[in-house]
Each structure stands twice: as C-alpha cells, then as structure tokens.
Amino acid sequence: MSKKIIEITDEGNAFLEKVNELSGQVVTLCDQCGTCSGCCPMAEEMDITPSQINRMVQLGQVEVLDLEAIWLCASCFTCTVRCPRGLDPSKICESLRQMTLRKAIDYMDIRDISEKEMRRLPQIAIVSAFRKFTG
C-alpha cells in the first residue's frame, strides 16, 4: 500500500477551529482508539464510523459534512461515557449537523412524514427529530 501525505490547508484548519469552538471539545485530543466506533449502536448503518468522523475533522476535511453518518447519530451518549480521552463525540457530531442546518439546509422535510406515522409517533419523537434534523 502506498503512503499518501495529506496536507492540512488553511481552510481545513479553520474548519477544525470552528468545530472546536461549536462543540467545546478539542478534537485533536482524539487518538483514534476506536472505542466510540465500537460502542456506537448506529455504526452499522453509518458510511464512516464515529472515530473516522473525528479523524476527518482533525484533518480539516470539510467533506465530512456531506456524509450520512453525522445524521445517524442518535445522541445516545454511549461514546461520551466511554471515551478514554474525555471527549464528547456526540457534541462533535452535533456541531457538524449545526454547520449545515445553520445555512438553512434541512436534513429532512417535515412534510415527508406520512399522515399515518404522524398520528402514531409520540410527541417526543417528533420534537427531537425536528430539533436535530431541521434548522
């Protein structure tokens, strides 16, 4: 396997700084042990795992915003209590979501939920989904 050197651009650095500021975390503290990916109940459906999300942020790769993984986080805080570096990956994910939502781009259209589902779902499901998926 050939090695590839990844350069961190100014734009990438600014992105990392922004994530640090929004989440109140120091993402560079992550040492890629993979505990979060191992305990994440949603990892199976994610296109990249939580520790890979952290890595992309560390390297300033803005493309992480286009991935499905950040939206699949259910804020269950399993990673939060288990991270050996004391990081809160759920806060990192939330700031990534917020970066998109704050540009008035929603992850879901609230009219997409069928009438039948709307009648069934409890309020807490709807309120929390709208808070996480719409800006």
Partner: peptide, 14 residues
C-alpha cells in the same frame, strides 16, 4: 384526537 394538530401542522414541534 390529539395528534391531529401534528398531522396538519407538524412545524409546531419546532
């Protein structure tokens, strides 16, 4: 029934 509001006005959950 209660959820009728959410059916027509889902945005109230925001």
């Amino acid at each position: 029934e209660g959820n009728s509001f959410l059916k027509y006005f889902p945005e109230i959950a925001r």
